[in-house]
Amino acid sequence: MSWSWPYFFDYMTNGLMLKGVWVTIWLSIISMVIGLALGILAALMKMYGNGLLRYIAEFYIWLFRGTPILIQLVIIYTGLPQLGIRFTVIESCILGLALNEGAYLAEIIRAGIMSVDKGQEDASRAVGMNWRERMWLVILPQATRTIIPPLGNQFNGMLKTTSLCSVISMQELMRSAQMIAQIQFRVLEAYCIAALWYLLLVSIWGLIQARIEAYYEKPFGSEEATVSDKP
């Protein structure tokens, strides 16, 4: 059995494959959004929380960065039912991916907040902003500029990490490829198509990320920085 182009092109637009692509996209986005919320929360708890909140955040980050995502997924889906805690496949995937992502994003967000000039805290206090207003109106918007490049990198990783969900039978792109490969045993063609789809998704994301970066870079852009000393 040698390489077959007809199978290759057939698999490219196979309905099962396309469904897998779609699942990979929304699974990545939902997990990322929840992970981002968790990451912001954990970063703020670690930086500004009192003793207990800080310990909770530190424990969470330590636990989820210190164990493989594959084990986390398997424990959530197949381990927890032993304790009577049951999640569906979809819930388990989102929960595992988001918790794992949040732990990494927390450190990225913390670094972003620390990169904001100390004078911004003074200035926002001086116009009468309380902690929440300082964070949402002044500190986090500026931290975003530092956070976006590594955040984009994390989402790139997320698109591919979702493939691990195939292990707990989530029918995303990787699982679709497995299923198609089993029909005619065209293993190479099926997985190459899956790989191509991942490449395509990651490339599209790269273009979107460049746009987002340009948006947040605009106020700091060098091309417009025409400093005039005239009053």
Partner: peptide
């Protein structure tokens, strides 16, 4: 913190390094 912030609204402060918000116009 929030009550102190309400007091601070009545006092304006200007800094050596300006400390304008760089991300907005």
């Amino acid at each position: 913190d929030a009550a102190v912030a309400r007091q601070q609204r009545d006092i304006g402060m200007v800094f050596q390094n300006f400390n304008l918000f760089p991300h907005v116009s």
